[in-house]
Design a protein around this nucleic acid. Structure first.
Ligand SMILES: [Zn+2]
Ligand SMILES: [Zn+2]
Ligand SMILES: [Zn+2]
Ligand SMILES: [Zn+2]
Lengths: 156, 156
DNA sequence: CCTCGGACGATATAATGTATCTCTCTGCGG
DNA sequence: CCGCAGAGAGATACATTATATCGTCCGAGG
């Protein structure tokens, strides 16, 4: 797993460089903390972990890094949780569209165990685009977060 | 317009009563403030307005009322804005499902003028339900918030 | 050398949301 | 009438999340 995270970090650094951006050591460290977390992680939880290696870290430190990672499409924000997760697709070649918006995605959030699964369902994306179009709305992005019970918790 | 708001409030009170809940004067006042706002309105903005008539109002005052109104499906929360809007369907007979979750809905949020339009698109709802089902996820509700340019702003 | 811009450090403050305890009112059983 | 339970609300304090602002450093380009 540690190997995997390092590989993703290297891949992310390359993707940033390709777009003229730079995954600095600080940003890389924050991204690592997000990826190592088991699920969505709050900015202040990240800050606490970051302080272990960077004593002077403060809220703007982590928020600036998170803003960068969001722009690069390397992480997503879960609005319902005010928390952040690594993009599930970044390691598989997508790594952000370079347009500053990431890619269309949806979250399935378990109300019991908190598991948050990223999916990228074309039908959902299309349906939303169609609905927006009918309203004359020019779509730039969307937050889609489902709440319910994950497969594991639904069994009990 | 004022007439309309009063009519909606009366309708909401009746709907609550039908479900064994009570739209108390305080809750009614908070709902009125939400409905009178031009768009999504934050809890603390509501609190400021509420203080004009209820000097002792504090954060829990407004949050408790908002929680009740959310449960009754009379308002929705816009997660991306941390703000609240009146349900666009409540005045038209729906007025909450009574199941404590409101109804499926989506928001179209204009990044330029801030206009927030509530829609209820069956195709989006179905597509999301299908995607969740394929993941073995039991869907209970969803936050769907599109960002872009409204018809008016897109023209410029 | 100069200076310009991006990244970061540092401090303070704003905005949003909860916990907890008390108090009062109301309806009801005894 | 009395005592009690439960909902609603007042009040204080606190927790969590996010931003504003200013200063410093450093490398790219002139
Ligand atoms: Zn993603
Ligand atoms: Zn679960
Ligand atoms: Zn609605
Ligand atoms: Zn607009």
């Amino acid at each position: 797993m540690a190997r995997t995270v390092e590989a993703v970090l290297d891949h992310a650094a390359a993707a940033c460089a390709r777009r003229g951006a730079q995954l600095t050591p600080l940003r890389r460290e924050v991204l690592r903390l997000v990826l190592e977390a088991e699920g969505p992680v709050g900015a202040y939880a990240l800050l606490d972990r970051l302080k272990e290696t960077r004593a002077g870290a403060a809220p703007p430190t982590v928020y600036r890094a998170l803003d960068f990672l969001l722009e690069q499409g390397l992480i997503h924000k879960v609005e319902r949780l005010n928390a952040f997760v690594g993009c599930a697709e970044a390691p598989h070649g997508h790594a952000g569209a370079g347009d500053g918006h990431g890619h269309p995605h949806q979250f399935l959030i378990c109300r019991r165990c908190g598991a948050t699964t990223e999916i990228s369902d074309a039908a959902v994306t299309q349906a939303l685009a169609a609905a927006a179009g009918r309203a004359g709305f020019v779509l730039h992005g969307a937050t889609v977060e489902a709440e319910g019970l994950c497969a594991r918790c639904a069994q009990g």
